[in-house]
Design a protein around this nucleic acid. Sequence first.
RNA 1: GGCGCUAUCGUCUAGGGGUUAGGACGGAAGAUUCUCAAUCUUCAAACCCGGGUUCGAUUCCCGGUAGCGCUACCA
Length: 507
Amino acid sequence: MNSSAPVRVRFAPSPTGHLHVGNARTALFNWLFARQSSGTMVLRIEDTDVDRSEARFEDQLIDDLKWLGLDWDEGPDVGGSFGPYRQSDRLPIYREHAERLLSEHKAYLCFCTEAELQQERERATAERRQPIYSGKCRAVDPAEAQQRRDSGEACAFRLRIPEHPIRFHDIVHGPVEFSNEVVSDPIILRSSGMPVYNYVVVIDDALMKITHVIRGDDHLSNTPKQVALYEALGWPVPEFAHLSTILGADRERLSKRHGATSIANFRDMGVLPEALVNYLALLGWAPPGGTREIFSIQELVKEFSLERVTPSPAVFDMEKLYWLNRHYIKQSSTQRIEHLALNFFRALGLLSSAHTQGLEAWFSKVMALVLPSVDRLEQLPEKAAVIFNHDAKAALTASDNAEVLGLPNTDAVLTRFTVKILEDESAREGKLTAECFKKIVNEVKAETGAKGKELFHPIRIVITGSHSGPEFDKLIPILEEGSHLALPRHVLSVHQRVEAFAKARGK
RNA sequence: GGCGCUAUCGUCUAGGGGUUAGGACGGAAGAUUCUCAAUCUUCAAACCCGGGUUCGAUUCCCGGUAGCGCUACCA
C-alpha cells in the first residue's frame, strides 16, 4: 500500500445512460476525498461493453457531473499524463500485460470451450459443489500450450489464483478476507482477445497510479480477484472503500421503477444541485456528533471523511431531499431561482421567451407568492394556476366548495361583493389596488355581517376558484398587473373574474 | 446452493460495556392566519432474535434470521 503517495482517485462510469444517483454519490465521495487531500481526481470511461456503450452517453455523464459541481484533473475531455482515459483506447495495453503475465507463468492459457465450462458448472451446482473453474488447463505444459495457441486453437488467458487466503483492507468495512477455495482462476483475456472487466480495472487503476479505489460495494466480491491480479503483476495494492448500495423505499436496489433516479431527472424536476449534493453526502456519511444536516459542497470538502462512511445500505428518501431543496431554494438569490423557474413556465406555454414589458417585476411577485409552497421548481406552474386559470363554472360545482357556497351568509356576500367590484372604476380598468380591494371587502363585511371565513372563503372562490389559497394583499396586484401584460395565456383581472363568476352564477 | 457484506425510531443517522439512547426528514398536536403555504412550540416513535463474555450488554464474540451483492469468455 502506498499510503504516503499523493492521493489519486478515479470515477469510472460506463457510458450506458444518464448518471444514476448511486454513481453520483460514488463520484461525489471520490471528489470530496480528492479535494480535501489535495489529490487528483481522474475520470475514466469504462466502455469495454461495446453493445451498451454510446458516445453520446459520455457527454451526458460529463454534463451531469458538471451540473453537480464536480470536476476532474484528468479525463477523456481534459487529457492528462496517464491516458488514454477511455478503455476502448487502451486495448493494446491490456494485451501487453496479459502476455507478460503469461510469460511469467502467473497466467496460463485455457483451452476449455464455453460449452465445457457451462457443463462443468452445471454439474458442480447439481452436486452442490462450488461452481468454480476446475483448473484443468493449469496442468497443461506451457510449451505445449504455446504450440496449440500458435496452431490457431482458441484459448483464453486465465490468472492463477494463489493457494492462500486473500486479504485486503477496506476503509469502510475494515479488514476483509476471502478463502482462495471460493475464487476461480478468472479469465483475464477472452479467446476473442477482448479483456475482461475485472482485469482491465486493475490494469487501469495501477497504471493510473490510483491510490484509493472508492466504488460501490457490488464490487466487494470481485476485489479478491483484483487483489490477486495486483500481486501477480507485482504492483502495489491500493486502499479500497466500498460504498453501500442505495435502495428504494421497498428496500430493493434503487432503479427506474422507483421513479426519479438519474441526476438528469432531478435537474428536470427543479431540484438544485447543492440540495442533491448535500443529500447524497448524508446518505452513508454523517459528521462527528451527527447533528448537523446542512453542508455546502465546500463545507463537505472540509468535513467529509471516508472513515466515517457507514457500511450499511441506505434507503433513498425523497422527502428529505425535498426538505433540503426547499432550504436551498430559500437560500438562493431570487434572481437565480427566477431564472430557473421561468423555464418551467415557458415549457408549458404559460410564458413566452419573448421580452415582455414589465414581465420581470411581475414574475418576481408571482414567485414571492408561490415559491414558499413548493418542494421543487417544477411544481411552480401548478401552484400558479390560481393566477393563470379561472373557471367560474368549475368553482361553482366543485365539491370542495359546496360547504362554503351553502353557508347562510354566502349569497349576500357574493352579491354585495360582485356589485361593488363591477361598479368600481379602477377595477374595471384592471387597476384595483390591494388597499381598495380590502376596502371593498370591509364594506361587504359591514353590510352583510359576515366575517372571517364566512367572508373570505366565498370571495376567494370568486377570485381563484378555491376557498383556500394565497393572501389577497399579494394576489390582487398580481392579477391586476398580469392582466395588462402581453402573455401567451392572458391573466384575468379581478373585474373579469367577478364578471365571469356572476355570469356563471346567473344572478 | 456457496461465499461475502449489512442490521439503532417509518426513513437518514449519532452514540457506545453503566446514557432520560441524541439529531434530522416524515407524522401528530398546538400557536399564528380568513384559509392554504411558510414560521414557531410541543409530542409520539428505535438498539432484529438467541446464546456467550461480563457485576452489567443495544454496544464485544458466536449462531440464527432477514435484506442486498458476488458466484460468467457481463460491467
